[in-house]
Amino acid sequence: MAGQKDNYKDTDKTVTEGNAKAGEAENFGGDSRVRIGTKGKWATGYNDVALIGKLEWQVASQGNDTSDGDNDGTFDARYSWIGADFGNGIQSMVGAIASPYAQLTDTTDTYENYSGGVEDQSTGDIWDDGVAVTYAADGWDLRSAVAFSDEEKTNSDLSGDDAKTQTRYGVSAGYTFPINEVSSLKPVLAYQAEEGKTTDGLDYTNSQYAAGLGYTYDAFYLASTYGQAKYDTDTQDTDKDTVWSVVASYKMLPEWTVLVNYGLVDPHNAGTNGDASGSWGEYYVLATQYDITAKAKAFAEYKINQVSGQDDNYIVGLQYTF
């Protein structure tokens, strides 16, 4: 079980709200959220087969944090799945599952809040009504999943305009190369797509592919992901975005870790000038983490937005894992 509370400078206003003008952020405060969950594994007594499961909820405890579909003061399920571990590296899960693309995102998703936000421009990292099969053994990490067709799924992460998401599918493959006792290298390849209908009734397909590489040397970690996101409809030529992220971290002391991150979403043929745009258009992040105990940590992050009209953002938080 884990809990987290964040206080941070709010995101930029796109329209005038109250006394805040477009482009302005709140001076302090903002939204807070708490997550709590549990997972387990139970032997069946039949060969090496075990039952596995995970439940996790999130509540926006203050403000109006809708980043994961939350409503203020209401618990919303994130992960909710059951499955089987067959004891030979193969697992299968059914329910609200992690996208296979998360393996690619995890390459650079190494800190708390602003981490991992740019890499997945497509379907989101949690798929409801999904079935996954994974294999993890001998250095390999292979994942596949499909979220079945459902006319009632809403709010495609790419379009953000009440489009109806129907089917999602994806695969990823990674392999860890041990170099010596303190260093390793892990390349990852991933692909995912979602299909559905726009609010105008057009069929659409949003897809994304990328490659990632993570390098560990003792207390130092360096990683990068690079790929492309595509957006198709029945009547529109493909729009393309190049998506790039680089992160480096260093554990200065047993308790202290410092991190830097750069991210870019670069449209190929969208807009009038092709400049990076949107909340994840181009940015830098400076972050630090302090391990209070083995299960508790404090962190602070500062996001420097490079898109015109966007303010910088910051967050401080505490996390405790039971």
Rank of each mutant, 00 (worst) to 15 (best):
G3I: 08
D12R: 12
E17S: 09
E17K: 15
A20M: 08
A20H: 07
A25Y: 04
E26P: 09
R33C: 00
I36K: 04
V49K: 06
A50S: 15
E56S: 05
W57A: 06
A60V: 05
N64T: 07
N64Y: 08
G69E: 06
G73N: 14
D85T: 12
S92I: 07
M93F: 08
V94S: 07
A102M: 00
Q103A: 08
T105N: 14
T110K: 11
Q121P: 02
D125N: 13
D125V: 11
G130V: 00
V131K: 03
V131D: 06
A136V: 09
A137T: 12
G139F: 12
R143M: 03
L158D: 08
S159E: 14
G170M: 03
V171L: 13
S172R: 04
Y175L: 01
I179A: 04
E181F: 00
K186Y: 13
A193E: 13
T199E: 14
N206M: 02
Q208D: 01
Y209P: 01
G214M: 07
G214T: 11
A219E: 06
L222V: 15
T225A: 07
T235W: 02
V243T: 09
L264W: 08
N269F: 14
G271E: 04
T272M: 14
G274W: 03
G274K: 11
D275F: 05
D275R: 10
A276I: 03
S279G: 05
E282H: 01
Q289Y: 11
Q289A: 11
I292K: 15
K295M: 12
F299T: 01
V307E: 06
G309K: 05
D311S: 11
N313R: 15
Q319F: 15
